[in-house]
Nucleic acid binder design. Structure first.
Lengths: 237, 237
DNA sequence: CCAAAAGTGTTGCCGTTACACCCATGT
DNA sequence: ACATGGGTGTAACGGCAACACTTTTGG
């Protein structure tokens, strides 16, 4: 910091944000991907939606712009994951990526994506256990593997690692659920993120003891057998 | 990402790394600060050492350069904290800061800093409990408050929060110790970071049960009373 | 022998797990 | 009535904290 006009002294890297927008559907973690045009770099591959950081826009606002412009979503839980800055991570040149992840429920994401042909909701296949944080694979609804562009497989691996780590002591899990939900639905969210089964009674009690959710008195509508009670989040003070 | 030459299309923010180099001395968290020249922006205030990210240097290498050039240190535990990008966080213009923290033992830091008049090792005063992550205060060895530049008080608060969160389930605490150390020393590190006392027997056992350290058979030299056993880290496989 | 700090044994609490069982509902 | 998933009781396990106690060393 020896100069008073540092902003022009060196050639600076470009700065982008990349957004991993996740949900859980059919007991599996899903992520929104955008197809890169065939003609360009990494053509035909699938990437996290992203955008460059303009000089008058904060990081949060940049992410919200990406969320709105590319995913048609206005509100979602957002959290910064980290910044990736290897010199060769983008063949177009030096591009830093500030990675964020966002969480919504499956219906929201389905509605936002319907009709957009360059978007897919891909299933995340995690080829490791625990919190290793290695890269992951993705596949479409038919089970076909998708090729991820740049270092996005690694970034997604870090997202899964972060989620697994925070699930127990934070309230991120509920961000993947609609406003009211059954306990069974919460358990499926947890199992999808952790990649392993959980015992039902222990799970229910731990959840209720934390005081984060409250029964509404209503019950789910369509069910072949006994309908489960619907719960809602208790607004944090 | 609609352009093939994005690097020049928009005016880009400048990108810097800031480094919080911490140690524990006299049962207190300390951080290395550098004094900003009286003439410039934030003149006379104290800042985390930092530097701009050059176009051909990775983030890790940039941090190592800062560590070497400004703190005289070659090796230290390094971890990325997060990226701070409010539009007005730096009065010189739009500067993103990718914050890292580093950990060493007190002797290392003292040796590196001796004779450098623009550097201080400041005590961190944490005015909150638990893992709130609010800004912190700093003071010199005589107890005089130091004025922190930019958003560095907030960044340091986030570092403390991160350390408190990771202390129990990771091995970061040992990065603040010399190669061999007593159990008492480890406990003082933990107490300094957590900001509260711990009961000795429980602490010792938990530590030894984790299998991360091993007795060397040697004992500490200078002691008024019974000398404690010296331990070392067991090299992770 | 005493002071001071190192180190150990024992107990009890509490959160979590596991397993067995009962309950409520739609066909 | 019965199949099916929702929901509860109970007992065992294990981590951790607290406390009292013993041991070791230098003066």
């Amino acid at each position: 910091m020896k100069s008073q006009r540092p902003l022009t002294e060196f050639q600076q890297p470009a700065v982008a944000v990349d957004l991993a927008l996740l949900t859980v559907a059919e007991r599996t973690l899903n992520v929104l991907l955008i197809r890169r045009p065939d003609a360009g770099i990494a053509g035909g591959e699938w990437a996290l939606p992203g955008g460059f950081v303009h000089i008058d826009t904060s990081l949060e606002d940049t992410v919200r712009r990406v969320l709105h412009d590319k995913a048609n979503i206005e509100h979602a839980y957002l959290e910064q994951l980290g910044t990736f800055g290897e010199v060769d991570r983008d063949p177009r040149g030096r591009v830093l990526s500030i990675a964020y992840f966002a969480l919504t429920d499956a219906q929201m994401l389905n509605a936002a994506v319907s009709g957009k042909s360059d978007l897919v909701i891909a299933r995340i296949i995690v080829p490791w256990e625990g919190e290793e944080g290695e890269p992951v694979q993705v596949e479409d609804e038919s089970g076909n593997a998708l090729q991820l562009a740049f270092d996005h497989a690694m970034i997604l691996g870090q997202v899964v690692k972060r989620l697994r780590g925070k699930l127990d002591y934070s309230a991120v899990g509920f961000e993947l659920l609609p406003p009211t939900f059954t306990l069974r639905a919460v358990q499926e969210i947890f199992e999808a993120i952790l990649g392993r089964g959980l015992t039902k009674p222990a799970f229910r009690r731990k959840l209720l003891d934390r005081g984060l959710i409250r029964p509404t008195g209503k019950r789910e509508a369509a069910s072949a057998f006994r309908p489960a009670e619907l719960y809602e989040r208790v607004k944090s003070e």
